Amino acid sequence: MNSKYLPTINAFLETLFSQHATTEAVSWLKEKQELVRTSETGKALYLPFSAAPRYVGKAPVTLTSTALQTANEHRRGFYPANWTLDQLARTILLLSLPSENADNYSKTVLKLFGTADMGELVALYAALPLLPHPEKFVHQATEGIRTNMGNVYEAIALHNPFPSENFSEAAWNQMVLKTIFTGKSISKIYGLDARSNPDLARMLSDYAHERWAAGRTVTPELWRPVGPHLNETILPDIKKLFASFNETEQEAAALACSQSTYPEAQTLLDEHPLLKYKIEEGQLNWSHISNKAIMA
């Protein structure tokens, strides 16, 4: 994130915090912000970052659709829908740290990752798209997707534009596959469609084959990143979905074909005129598939 956006993001977060926190919590945070701003070494960040829940609480921050839209306007892809007061306070403290020197800034922040508990890790990873010098945190984020802590993984992978903007293709593909493997909805991955690629399509097809060979199913959402890269190798998978008795799998097959420029995929879609019509009329899309998967 470009540091020129920091003042507007700071103002937005501080307003949000003051709307939800007690007067005492607001006073505490302002005092600690000033200490962090004037810290020459950055060490003033560590204690309040750790102590934030004790002084501001862990209550959820309720955002209206208008507030979420404003968040996205300040920083594209920023979606703090499920944040808590302590997470908000910790993010404000991170953004209060002097950042003119990229090495000093990143060194101070990265030290927090080394000693963080789960709540602190959630705050750190979710704040990454707001921090200056994003290139300094790419390695930490790619290492973070290996975590077995569900909340921490979600903070990196879901509703977070940092991976889409900074991950290598290999790291991105592993994240998408792990999201499916752990039973989370890939519809919450920011930039999913923009970063679909042939290698990911192959990996997801291979994963589906493994599941099918074991007599298990795969989420119909899996085929969303596959559709744009259908070829003669993957098309039999789509035919299998069309032959399924599961309506959602048939719908996913049609949507995958609709995303493809592969002639045989278009021919296959033409053989299912009702589904093609629903797609053309906007009655069927991947959000429809995701909602059904979540409700299942």
Rank of each mutant, 00 (worst) to 15 (best):
A81K: 11
D199L: 15
L128Q: 07
E169S: 13
A116H: 08
W83M: 13
E154L: 12
D199W: 03
L124I: 08
T108C: 12
L192E: 06
F162V: 00
F181S: 15
N82C: 00
T115C: 02
K178R: 15
I180E: 02
A127V: 01
T147H: 03
A126V: 05
D193I: 06
G119K: 09
G150S: 14
L124V: 09
A194M: 06
L131K: 05
M118E: 14
L85Q: 13
W83G: 14
A201R: 02
N82Y: 06
E165T: 10
M118D: 13
N160A: 09
L131Y: 11
D86V: 07
R146P: 00
V152C: 08
L121C: 10
P134W: 01
D206W: 07
A123D: 08
L97H: 07
N197E: 03
G191F: 03
M203H: 05
S106N: 05
P161R: 04
T91S: 08
A171I: 01
F137G: 02
S205F: 01
L121V: 01
D199S: 14
S196P: 01
R146K: 13
L85G: 08
A127Q: 00
L95K: 07
N104H: 15
K178G: 02
K184I: 01
A116D: 02
D117Q: 07
N104W: 13
L158Y: 14
A116F: 06
E169G: 04
Q140A: 15
F181Y: 12
Q87A: 15
S185W: 01
H133N: 14
A116T: 03
V109L: 02
T179V: 03
L131P: 05
M203Y: 03
P198V: 06
N197D: 10
N101F: 10
Y79E: 15
L131V: 06
T182K: 01
R202T: 06
T179E: 05
P98R: 09
W83E: 14
L130V: 12
A157V: 09
E154Q: 15
E100H: 02
L131W: 04
G144F: 01
S196K: 04
P161Y: 06
V138K: 08
Y153E: 00
A81S: 14
T182G: 00
L112V: 09
A157D: 08
P198Y: 07
A157I: 08
D206K: 13
L97S: 06
L177E: 12
Y153W: 14
R202E: 05
N82M: 00
R146V: 00
A141P: 09
A123S: 15
A171Y: 06
L124H: 04
Q140N: 12
G114Q: 12
N82F: 06
A123P: 13
L93H: 12
L124S: 04
D103G: 04
N197V: 03
